[in-house]
């Protein structure tokens, strides 16, 4: 059973990572980020039921809250990019390099 949980977690995490690496739209990348965090939540929930550890469950809630905060910040940043009149894509964010 453990391996199944880790397989799911790993797969979702990899999907999320792939979305960040491969997608060009910033919103999609944000979704990938959220996916990664959620994937880890799955593993944590499984383990806290296995170890009967209520504290960890509370931690999962906190992590969800933090992920939400992160999403808020990310969206506000994407909004700022949009307001500046630029395309919400990674290609338009390539001025700083080297």
């Amino acid at each position: 059973m453990t391996w199944a949980v880790w397989a799911v977690t790993g797969f979702l995490f990899a999907c999320g990572a792939a979305m960040i690496v491969l997608r060009r739209q910033l919103l999609a990348m944000l979704m990938g980020l959220e996916l990664m965090i959620s994937a880890v939540n799955i593993a944590l929930v499984y383990y806290c039921s296995r170890y009967a550890d209520g504290e960890t469950l509370a931690s999962v809630l906190l992590i969800i809250a933090i992920a939400a905060a992160e999403a808020v910040v990310g969206l506000s940043l994407i909004l700022k990019v949009y307001e500046a009149g630029r395309e919400v894509e990674t290609e338009s964010l390539q001025e700083l390099k080297g």
Binding site: I20, V21, R23, L93
Partner: peptide, 9 residues
């Protein structure tokens, strides 16, 4: 450092 976020990640 190409400047693309994707490459960075």
């Amino acid at each position: 450092a190409t400047g693309r976020i994707n490459d960075y990640v």
